[in-house]
Computed example of a mutant assay.
Amino acid sequence: MRIGYIRSNIPVIIGQQQIEEVDQFTYLGSVIADDGNAEHDVKCRLGKASAVFQRLQPIWRSSTIALPIKIRLFNSIVIPTAVYACETWKMSAGIVRKLNVFQQRCLRRILRITYRDRMPNEEVHRRTLTHPLAETVAERRFRFAGHIFRLPPNRLPRTAIKWTPQQGKRKQGRPRTTWRKTFIDDLKAVDVAWDEAENIATDRARWRSLAAQCALRHRRN
C-alpha cells in the first residue's frame, strides 16, 4: 500500500516476488485505506453490527423479554461491534450521520416504531435511556487521547499526535479532515488549549469529566 497523493508505478519486489499493491486491507479487525479515510472502516463496522443485530431478531421480537433487557443486550453486543476501534476514526458529518442513523434504525425496530409514527429521535433516546452513537464515539476518542498524553515523551504515539509536516505542498482544495483536527475540535468544544490538555490528562478523573463534557457538547451541536 502506498500512502500519499503522489502515485508511482515502480513495483515493490522482495527476492524474486513482486508484492501485490492494494488500496485497502483489514488488520486486527480494522480496515486501513491508502487515503487515510475512516469511511471504509465505518462502513465495514456498521455492516458487521447490522449482521449481529439481524441474528438477534428473535430476541427483539420476543414479547416475554422486557425492554430494559433488550436494550442492555443491544448496548453490550451490537454497539461494541459497531464502534470497535472508533477511537482512531477521524470524524466527518457523513460519518456522524451514518452512526446515528444506524443506532436509530435498530432502536426503532426494538421499540416496534415505524417512521410513520413520526416519533422524534430525542423521544427514542428517552425511552431507551441511550445517547446518540456519535456522542459515544467522541467520548471514547477523548479518553483515548488522554492515554496518549500520559505516555512517556519518547513513545511513538506521543510523537505522532503532535507531528505536523514541515515540507511539501498540498494539492488545491479544502484540506482533508484528520484525526488530529478532529481532536482539536473536541478540545475547542470544552474550551481547553492543547498545552493545557497535556497537563490535565495526568489527572484521570478530571480528564474523564472533560470527555463527558465533550460528548455533551457534540450532542448540542
Rank of each mutant, 00 (worst) to 15 (best):
K70L: 07
S62K: 12
A33E: 07
L111A: 09
H131R: 15
L210I: 03
I95F: 10
T130P: 10
E139T: 01
I69K: 14
T130D: 15
I6L: 12
R112P: 07
R7Y: 08
A138K: 02
P132F: 02
L129W: 08
I148N: 05
P132V: 00
L107K: 14
L46T: 02
R140H: 03
R97F: 03
K188N: 10
R127K: 13
D23L: 05
P80L: 06
T136H: 13
T164Q: 12
A189E: 05
G4K: 10
P152N: 13
I148L: 11
I69M: 13
L46W: 01
E139G: 08
I161T: 09
A145W: 06
S50M: 01
R141F: 00
G15M: 06
T88Q: 03
A51L: 07
L46E: 08
R176E: 01
R108G: 13
I79C: 03
I65Y: 12
A205G: 03
E39G: 11
A49E: 08
Y5F: 08
Q166V: 10
T202W: 08
L210H: 06
I184T: 04
A212Y: 02
A134Q: 06
A193V: 05
A49R: 13
K162E: 15
T159N: 15
I19W: 01
I10V: 12
A38G: 09
R127W: 12
N121M: 10
R158F: 03
N9M: 08
L216K: 14
R150L: 03
L67N: 12
F74C: 04
G29S: 11
D191W: 00
K90N: 05
I65D: 14
R220E: 09
E123P: 07
T64S: 06
R158S: 07
L111S: 06
F144L: 05
Q166P: 03
F25L: 12
C214N: 14
H125P: 14
Y5V: 05
V22R: 11
A33T: 12
A51M: 04
V83G: 07
I113K: 11
D117Q: 13
F149P: 03
W207E: 13
R97Y: 05
T178L: 07
S50V: 00
R158M: 02
P153D: 09
L187F: 06
A134E: 08
W89S: 00
W179A: 07
E122H: 04
I10P: 01
R219P: 03
P152Y: 10
L111Q: 12
M91G: 04
R176I: 00
N100K: 05
E196K: 12
R206H: 10
F53W: 10
R61N: 15
C86K: 02
E122Q: 12
R108I: 08
R2F: 07
